[in-house]
Design a protein around this nucleic acid. Structure first.
Lengths: 123, 123
DNA sequence: CATTTAAGTTAGCTTTCTCTTACTTTTCTG
DNA sequence: CAGAAAAGTAAGAGAAAGCTAACTTAAATG
């Protein structure tokens, strides 16, 4: 997990949308992430080249195994962190905003240690 | 705390160096952060313009009140997070690396909630 | 005192990621 | 079926933040 915050966010969004919509297209991503179509287009090209997604002739986007692996890892961090912060009394808006950034910068090692501690803090 | 990771890191480094050295110069920052002198030069110019630092004729750098406020806030997050992760068994290297990134993306609201929980997890 | 070294700066390049503008292609719909 | 709307893409611009190369000063040294 180095400097792929942007790509990781795209993959996470694709995962979320694919659970919500029958198919995922570039426009859906643009709308969900509040960025322009051309930006998504360029990003999808890169994700395609990196074999994180596959795009059908009709423009439907699906995660490859590689893409799914990254997406679920980020999504798990997102869910866990935002739920934790909310349970501590942080406002939902702030909790989600903070989780959205932190989720990209926690190693597997730290994340699993945090999870264990948070779930049962008394060792 | 939006997209100032770079500036925040410079300010944090200046704070750390000013506790370790009699005076802080651009070269010291470059060496500590492992980046080139020109990069530091440009960054210091921006920090000067934003009134986060003051640079003496001799090239000695000091934090303004504004710069100090940011630096200590980041440094506190850094110390707290890395110590916490280390106490959970995360390797020092990983703990510091993760803290170095996360520290920029935690709001005051979330940080103070986390601190409280971590210091006394049983409410 | 002349030369070398150290420190700082300027200019120009690269990458990443976004944007706008403008084009193509496809798909509705009246 | 013709025109409009929607989706996608290409090209070019700009902001950040780093780099190298090359320059200026200032300080140190032999």
């Amino acid at each position: 997990m180095h400097d792929n915050e942007s790509s990781e966010n795209y993959l996470e969004t694709i995962l979320i949308l694919s659970e919500r919509l029958p198919v995922v297209r570039s426009v859906d991503i643009a709308e969900e992430m509040n960025i322009t179509k051309p930006s998504v287009s360029v990003a999808m090209k890169k994700l395609r080249e990196n074999e994180c997604i596959v795009v059908s002739k009709a423009g439907f986007i699906t995660l490859t195994e590689k893409g799914m692996k990254i997406a679920s890892s980020i999504y798990e961090r997102h869910t866990f962190l935002s739920n934790w912060l909310i349970s501590l009394g942080v406002s939902e808006k702030t909790a989600v905003r903070d989780a959205c950034r932190m989720e990209h910068y926690i190693s597997e090692e730290s994340f699993s240690a945090m999870k264990q501690f948070i779930q049962s803090p008394n060792k």
